[in-house]
Design a protein around this nucleic acid. Structure first.
Lengths: 145, 145
DNA sequence: CTAAATGCAAAATTTTTGCAGTCCC
DNA sequence: GGGACTGCAAAAATTTTGCATTTAG
């Protein structure tokens, strides 16, 4: 899907779910679509200010929470205190650098398809896997020398 | 390792790293050792109050951060706004219920040993894997009917 | 037109910090 | 005894909420 198509699909999904396609929602979604750094609310806010000078942090919080509930964006699992978001909804891994905190996407087909151990059924019904690998990214490794 | 042995090992590790084995540190660690619910700082605080009436939230925050830096406890990756901790340091999965938020440990030998795709080396050096499975636990599934 | 969404301000929640006194080694 | 640790209070950082106004459908 091209970016254009993803925006179109977003608008349709909103209408289907009875969510209004407001200027703010659209811009927040587009900004997230153009970001590959899994931004915090604060970062999105700063990036959006030039285009939407009157937007507020609470609108971004509310919007992302709503979009998350409707499966249109994801909240990224981290160990930090600030929430981070992404628009990529397909299953994928995250690589997180312990030093700089950067989060990088990584596709690993094998894991997307792997069968989970059957004993998990005793716990309940799994809907989604989330895998994160922690380590030291190349850049930080270089800087430490 | 028995609980006794784990406490002994904790004390030794502290001494080895130059951390003082204070009454508070020991009690915080023991409380986490006895918890299997990956408690928040707030929960630990409430559980510790009867034993340590003068302990404060900031001491627990500081202690857990210190112990985490020394590899003696882990901060659990979640999507929530409150930090959660555990004392189990071996690699293992977490099952998180989307409804009640309960976090359950699960061992999956296969995944502990699986080889990561070699392309990851382009990113850097992986030190640790973290896998979380999200879904609906049995209890919540029953309650929803 | 109407229900939903936004922006503002204020509050609530969660975490961090400075500093004086206390406690391990 | 000395440096590390704790508790207190206050501040900082992050997220949520109430309400009047605006906007999409």
């Amino acid at each position: 899907m091209t970016l254009e198509e993803r925006i179109r699909a977003f608008e349709e999904a909103c209408r289907r779910d009875g969510l209004k396609v407001t200027h703010q929602r659209l811009e927040i979604f587009k900004e997230l679509l153009n970001s590959n750094d899994h931004p915090t609310v604060e970062k999105l806010y700063n990036r959006l200010l030039p285009k939407l000078p009157t937007i507020s942090l609470d609108t971004i919080y509310r919007t992302l929470t709503t979009l998350e509930q409707h499966g249109l964006v994801s909240r990224v699992q981290t160990v930090e205190s600030q929430a981070r978001f992404e628009s990529k909804m397909e299953e994928h891994l995250h690589l997180i650098c312990k030093k700089c905190g950067k989060i990088t996407d990584f596709d690993w087909q094998f894991f997307d398809k792997v069968a989970l151990p059957p004993e998990i059924e005793n716990w309940g019904q799994i809907e989604q896997k989330s895998i994160t690998l922690h380590g030291l990214c190349k850049q930080c490794a270089v800087e430490m020398r």
